[in-house]
Simulated scan of single mutants.
Amino acid sequence: MTGTTVIDLGPQARIVAELAERVADGQLAESTPCPDYAVRHLLGHVAGLSVAFRDAARKNLGTTTGHRPDASLPVLGPEWRQELPKALDALAEAWRDPSAWDGMTRAGGIDLPGGVAGAVAADELVVHGWDLARATGQEYVPDPAALEVAYGFLRLAAAGDRGPFGPRVPVPESARLLDRAVGLSGRDPGWKP
């Protein structure tokens, strides 16, 4: 686990769950900063990644950890309002086990060290929390520890002008940390619906 920052993903998972709770049914078809994703797809993606990263933490490798997220548009189940908060809680609980951050695991069909998978989970929660807040007009203040880990992952994963999720959007170093992370993720911090 050399160089890995171990954090509690629970605070950020709760923030995302609270954002999702405030999504009105009429907002499910609205656009998001994620190309090709409406709010319902984004929520479906968050539900799926919550299960996948829970299983990655537990080293329970199989269908959930082997599925590439870009293989198809995510589907939002009819019981998502009850299931999503539970999935986010389970993800956070799984990463509280120190062994989750050690050894090798798999997420999104990619084998990676546990510490890297934990950083990717933090990144997913932080950036998709921003996506959801922006798409639905909500205020967003991510968990500071999760934001630091997400930014660190994105900074290391970005090569040249391309980040791990698309072309980087230039953001001044003087900008707040969330805006810099969002830019590294390939999103424009000024995006509006």
Rank of each mutant, 00 (worst) to 15 (best):
G186M: 04
A135M: 02
T2Q: 12
W80S: 06
E18Y: 00
G3N: 05
T105F: 11
A17C: 11
T2R: 15
D143E: 13
Q138V: 03
G10E: 15
V171K: 06
P69H: 05
A107V: 14
V126R: 05
A159L: 14
V51K: 04
D36K: 03
T63Y: 05
R162Q: 04
P78T: 12
R40C: 04
A119D: 01
E139N: 11
P170D: 13
L178D: 08
A87G: 06
P144N: 07
V39T: 00
G152L: 02
L184W: 10
D188Q: 15
E18T: 04
G190M: 11
F165A: 03
A87W: 12
A71F: 03
V6P: 09
G109K: 09
G48Y: 00
A159S: 14
A57H: 06
L61Y: 04
G103K: 08
C34Q: 02
Q12I: 08
A117D: 03
G137I: 01
D161E: 14
A146M: 11
P98F: 09
G186D: 01
V23D: 01
F153S: 00
I110H: 10
A107K: 07
P164R: 03
Q82W: 02
A87L: 10
P172V: 12
R134F: 08
I110F: 01
V16T: 00
L61C: 09
P142L: 04
K59F: 12
C34E: 08
F153N: 06
W80M: 00
A57E: 02
A133I: 04
Q82N: 10
R187D: 15
L184I: 11
C34F: 05
P74Q: 06
A57D: 01
A145I: 15
L132Q: 01
D111N: 04
V182E: 08
R54G: 14
G183L: 03
A100F: 06
G62L: 08
A87V: 14
S174N: 05
A71L: 08
Q138A: 15
H45D: 00
P33I: 09
T5A: 14
A57T: 11
G48W: 01
G66F: 03
T4H: 10
L43I: 10
A119P: 04
P113H: 02
L91G: 03
V141M: 12
P167D: 05
D123G: 13
D123Q: 13
W191S: 13
E79D: 15
P172Q: 11
R58N: 15
K86R: 11
L178T: 12
L42T: 02
G115W: 09
D131C: 01
G152C: 03
R155K: 15
P33S: 11
A122E: 07
